[in-house]
Amino acid sequence: MPTVSATGLIIRGTDWSETSRIVTLWTREFGKVRALAKGGRRPRSPFESALDLLTLCSIVLIRKPGGGLDLLTEARAVERFVGLRQSLTGLYAGVYVAELLGDLTQDDDPHATLFEEAVATLTDLTAGTPPRMLRLLRFEMVLLRELGYAPQLEACAGCRGELVPGPGLGFSPAAGGVVCGRCRVPPRGWRRLTPELWLALRQLVDEASWKQVAAAARRELRGLMDGVVTEHLGHRPRSAAYLRDEG
């Protein structure tokens, strides 16, 4: 069985026995992997304090063929995002990032761009700039794009027709994006899209302008993104109830 090195973010951890833990890591090289860390609960182990949630670590894994649980033989913390522990808003936003990475992705499906975005998001959440809620919204948009769920914003997600600003314009998570007045049916999750919100959505997608999203639009974007994530996940993320906008 091959031994491999990787860099990964701990996104889940459960105690397996008196001394061992099972951890889920989101790695740059292999995507999501689950591994058993024998002795991972002991204070003196080859894992030190690297197995805590939201720790970025360099790891050595023995990969099990056939999708079995990998064996983690070594882990060294690279970054613990200590600042997250000093703000509940930052901490729960970080937990939300971990939940989306864990629940929206498949095992062994690497996305290096998404990995880098997750690390950059946690770094920004730790610093508190840009505003944490905006940073989280941008992460969600990149996540959706990387996984092929990017919302349709430039043409009607229902009929592919041209979108004309007006009172009929809306956003439908079920349809997959912005819908014209004719495609309002079925109305599940439909919400009216003001010109300001439409602009904010397009800014959020754009690498160059996402930081310019107006503060007033963030709350509505949050509700809208909640609907999109819930649509793809099949349920509302557990940590979504803990998210707060610091304003």
Partner: peptide
């Protein structure tokens, strides 16, 4: 002293 333990302490102290 885990992220969840620290978060709980922070919640209570707030």
């Amino acid at each position: 002293p885990t992220i969840e333990g620290d978060g709980t302490a922070l919640y209570i102290s707030n």
